[in-house]
Computed example of a mutant assay.
Amino acid sequence: MAHYKLILEDDSREDFSLVAIHCSQEAYKMAFLLNQHVQLRLQRRRVDLDFSEEGLEITFPLFEFENQDQYTTYYLVANKCKTVAAHTFASGGLFGNDAAEEVVTKYLIPEYKKVDFFLKIVSEYETTPIRKLVMQLNEINQIISAFSVEPSDVKSKDNLIFD
């Protein structure tokens, strides 16, 4: 009797470049700065990146620009989301329960907690000029620092699938 062996490969692998950005601006302001200084045309998607974790609805703003001339798509996504978690507990009194609210910070990529934004670049070409882009980003006054991240080092790269 013949034995067959199935080899399952991870087909969800997508070749992309990733730039981490430290900046204290809001997401819409960050997209505006990139549009102004790096000549992108980032627009906010109609649907943000949504997750449900531990009973909390977590939403990360997502901006996208598809450069059809260079066959490249840029995604700007916030790494931090602050949400309010409500906790109810019995007070032992006559009038029922007391409620307390707590602000919880969740991260898209938890291993990079100090990063505020990620710029994901998907290109049809083998190489994209990431070094030049990082230099342009570091020249923007509002950006504290920007650096390239190796996608293979990101453990939670499934969170970077935006389709």
Rank of each mutant, 00 (worst) to 15 (best):
F118D: 03
E26G: 10
E66G: 04
N141W: 07
E101Y: 11
E14H: 09
F60V: 01
Q25L: 15
V115Y: 02
V84E: 07
D48T: 08
Y28H: 12
D69P: 03
K157S: 12
F16R: 02
M30P: 00
S24D: 13
E66Q: 12
H37T: 03
Q25G: 00
K113M: 11
F95W: 09
I140Y: 06
G92S: 02
S12T: 15
I21G: 03
I140P: 00
D10P: 05
G92C: 04
Q68G: 04
L18A: 06
F63D: 04
L40I: 07
H3L: 13
L119W: 03
N79K: 01
G93N: 07
D98G: 07
G96Q: 01
M30K: 00
Y75S: 00
G96Y: 00
V134T: 03
Q68E: 11
Q36R: 14
F60D: 02
P129K: 12
K5H: 15
K132Y: 06
Y28P: 05
N141A: 14
A100E: 13
F65A: 05
Q25F: 06
Q39I: 10
L6T: 15
E102F: 03
N79T: 07
D50A: 10
L8R: 12
D153M: 12
L133M: 14
E64A: 06
T73G: 00
L62M: 02
S12N: 13
S148H: 10
L133K: 05
A100G: 07
I58Q: 00
K106I: 04
I130P: 02
A99Y: 11
P61C: 05
Y4E: 15
R131K: 14
